[in-house]
Design a protein around this nucleic acid. Structure first.
Lengths: 254, 254
DNA sequence: AAGTGGTCTAGACCACGCA
DNA sequence: GCGTGGTCTAGACCACTTA
């Protein structure tokens, strides 16, 4: 019997089918909890449980007190590879996208620089000994009021102390070039991408809705000598980014 | 006042702090719902709501009727780049990992081949016209009884019809080499990685717990002539994979 | 048999934004 | 003021596993 399936899940199943099937396109309004309770001859609590399933799947959002709506999906392109070439590559895509939309929202970023004890995973990746400090460059990219992603770069303090790397402003020539000028040109990068649910801190900083996972992209930059000099952690909300790479066979085999 | 924060969230906050702070290490048992309700002088329903928060964050799992436990995190390395060189690269890592664990679980895979109408996004990426069919090679990798990831490869039917590509067995020399032998050597690959919550179908196929996001990795392979010949979609559960890339500056600029 | 989480009922009061 | 979702209470019955 299919009716062994709990009622709140059957409610969710039905609405999910309507959404993926196109009967309820992105942006459209769903029945209210009270209406659903009536339709299914149950209480509001059970209807609430059904809606919660879809919210946690990232399919719908509650816009109180207007109601539930089918979520829109408009990801931005994210290309880790480009960062080698242009100083602020995806910020360009970023601005371009907003310009295209013409909705008056401004793309921007804010930068903070500080000195800190590295987190254990950063210390590991930079092969630092206990007590060694790092400079941290924290950048938040925004569109309108909304934060789009967070990037934290970490470099051993002795490498960048007193340089432009620590300027809390946009460095036009790119911070990687600054590292090069300091004698620490990055020639190899290791990218690690993990997928997880956000921490509560990330939820507030990125104003994430429930059911929105994040990609955590950690790029470790190495010098010619094979020494790690920079660890950059990007937090990318899943509903706003697609990560893109290109690979060429001949080059990789060369 | 901090007590403006809903009670069920304060319950979740407290337990989350104990988990991330190390007081409740991975694998340890949490209080039962009844115990929590008593401790916080509320009803079980509210305690349930608190636990649901942590479950949806992927921090804990309910192992009924034993109780709630802090989730363990043991990801596998996933390297899209390796696929150019070895035929079954991460399956090796796969087997190695299981061997290391020595827990008797067998790593394996099952393969199914079929002919189908391509999904719209696959048709797009392969630049097919309406009505053109594709061959689909669907592979599920397992450890013990548990599915670890799903891979669906799509190639225009006329390219691989009658070849080994369509054999529903492990092709030792690799399916990419088969494509090469057929005159469609892949020399460039575009990787797209999206992050989202799983569909109900994926939840059952991969036996995913709640609060587990997935990475959807779509690799489109191009021939020397720049024509797309193969679209491979990998679904990677977030709790079991870390995606790794390596980039070299000199090569990329060459 | 006891204890666990899973589901469900039938209510209640609240903050919020819109008409 | 009204309808929305957000939260909460005080119960209930169930399936399942372990002791």
């Amino acid at each position: 019997m299919a009716s062994r399936r709990p009622l709140y899940q059957r409610i969710a199943d039905r609405l999910r089918a309507d959404i993926t099937g196109g009967e309820l396109p992105p942006g459209s309004k769903l029945p209210s909890e009270a209406e659903l309770a009536a339709q299914w001859e149950t209480t509001r609590s059970t209807a609430v449980a059904g809606m919660r399933v879809l919210v946690n799947e990232g399919l719908i959002v509650a816009d109180r007190p207007r109601g539930y709506f089918v979520r829109r999906w408009e990801p931005m392109i994210y290309r880790p590879q480009r960062e080698f070439h242009a100083p602020e590559p995806d910020l360009d895509i970023f601005r371009q996208r907003v310009a295209e939309e013409g909705d008056g929202r401004q793309a921007g970023q804010s930068i903070e620089v500080s000195i800190a004890n590295p987190a254990p995973d950063v210390r590991d990746r930079l092969s630092l000994s206990e007590g060694q400090l790092v400079a941290v460059r924290r950048r938040t990219r925004t569109i309108g009021e909304e934060a789009y992603n967070i990037q934290d770069s970490h470099v051993p303090l002795n490498v960048v102390q007193g340089s432009d790397w620590m300027s809390p402003e946009d460095v036009a020539r790119g911070t990687n070039r600054v590292l090069g000028e300091l004698g620490y040109e990055i020639v190899k990068v290791l990218d690690e991408i993990a997928v997880r649910m956000p921490t509560p801190d990330e939820v507030t900083r990125l104003s994430l809705g429930p059911g929105t996972p994040v990609a955590e992209h950690v790029a470790t930059g190495y010098t010619m000598a094979g020494e790690p000099v920079q660890v950059t952690r990007n937090i990318l909300p899943g509903d706003r980014h697609v990560i893109i790479y290109e690979r060429n066979k001949r080059i990789e085999e060369g």
